[in-house]
Amino acid sequence: MTTRRAFLSTMLAAGLAPRLGWADVGCPDFLAAARLADGSHALFGMGADGSERFAIPLPGRGHAAAAHPTRPEAVAFARRPGSFALISDCASGTLLQSLQAPAGRHFYGHGCFSGDGALLFTTENDFEHGTGRIGIWAREENYRRIGEFSSGGIGPHDILRLPGQDVLVVANGGIRTHPDHGREKLNLDEMSPSLTYLTPSGALLDRVMLPDDLRQNSIRHLAAREDGLVAFAMQWQGEPGLPLPLLGLHRRGGSLRLGSAPEPEQIAMAGYVGSIAFNGSAGRIALTSPRGGRAHLFDDDGDFLGAMRRPDICGIGATRDGFVATDGLGGISILGAHLMPQAALPRAWDNHLVTI
Results as ranks from 00 to 15, higher is better:
Leu162Gly: 10
Thr3Cys: 07
Ala37Ile: 01
Phe107His: 01
Ala13Ile: 05
Ser98Trp: 03
Thr355Asn: 06
Ala64His: 02
Gly280His: 08
Met234Ile: 13
Thr122Ile: 14
Ile175Leu: 09
Gly132Glu: 00
Ala203Leu: 11
His338Val: 13
Gln235Arg: 08
Ser150His: 12
Asp299Met: 09
Gly317Lys: 01
Ile332Trp: 01
Ala233His: 06
Ile56Arg: 00
Cys112Glu: 02
Gly322His: 07
Leu329Tyr: 11
Asp300Leu: 13
Pro341Met: 13
Trp349Gly: 12
Ala231Thr: 07
Ala233Met: 06
Gly130Arg: 10
Leu96Ile: 10
Thr122Tyr: 02
Phe44Met: 14
Gly241Ala: 13
Ala55Asn: 02
Glu52Cys: 10
Gly115Arg: 06
Asn351Arg: 05
Leu195Glu: 07
Gly104Arg: 06
Ala307Thr: 15
Gln237Pro: 08
Ala277Gly: 11
Gly248Met: 02
Thr326Pro: 01
His63Ala: 04
Asn172Asp: 07
Ala224Met: 12
Leu222Pro: 10
Gly238Phe: 07
Pro311Asn: 03
Asp158Gly: 11
Ile154Met: 06
Leu229Ser: 03
Leu214Gln: 01
Gly173Phe: 01
Ser9Asn: 08
Ile332Thr: 05
Ala277Lys: 04
Leu20Gln: 01
Asp189Cys: 00
Phe44Glu: 10
Ala23Arg: 07
Leu99Trp: 00
Arg176Trp: 03
Asp89Pro: 01
Leu335His: 11
Gly155Tyr: 00
Thr177Ser: 09
Arg161Asn: 03
Ser275Asp: 14
Ala203Asp: 15
Gly293Thr: 11
Leu305Ala: 09
Ala42His: 05
Asp24Ser: 08
Arg220Ala: 14
Val354Glu: 08
Thr123Lys: 00
Gln97Trp: 05
Asp227His: 13
Leu242Thr: 03
Trp137Tyr: 15
Gly331Lys: 01
Arg320Met: 10
Asp206Gly: 02
Leu258Pro: 00
Arg207Gly: 05
Ala65Thr: 10
Leu43Ala: 12
Ser88His: 15
Leu198Gly: 04
Thr122Cys: 15
Glu141Arg: 14
Ser192Pro: 04
Asn142Tyr: 07
Leu305Glu: 09
Asn125Pro: 07
His68Trp: 03
Phe278Val: 11
His221Trp: 07
Pro311Cys: 00
His110Cys: 12
Ile136Ala: 11
Ala85Lys: 02
His106Pro: 10
Gly306Val: 13
His178Gly: 03
Thr94His: 12
Asp327His: 02
Ile154Pro: 00
Trp236Lys: 06
Ser201Gly: 13
Gln342Cys: 09
Ala85Tyr: 12
Glu140Lys: 11
Arg53Val: 04
Gly274Val: 11
Ala14Gly: 15
Gly182Leu: 11
Arg61Met: 04
Trp22Tyr: 08
Tyr143Ile: 02
Leu305Gly: 05
Ser98Met: 11
Met269Ser: 02
Pro211Val: 08
Leu204Phe: 09
Gly39Glu: 09
Ala224Cys: 15
Gly283Arg: 06
Ala138Asp: 14
Ala307Pro: 05
Pro81Trp: 09
His221Gln: 04
Gly322Tyr: 10
Gln100Asp: 13
Ala118His: 08
Ile154Ala: 07
Gly253Asn: 08
Cys90Gln: 00
Arg257Met: 14
Ile356Arg: 03
Leu287Gln: 03
Ala348Tyr: 03
Val324Ile: 15
His157Trp: 03
Leu222Gly: 00
Met209Gln: 14
Glu184Asp: 14
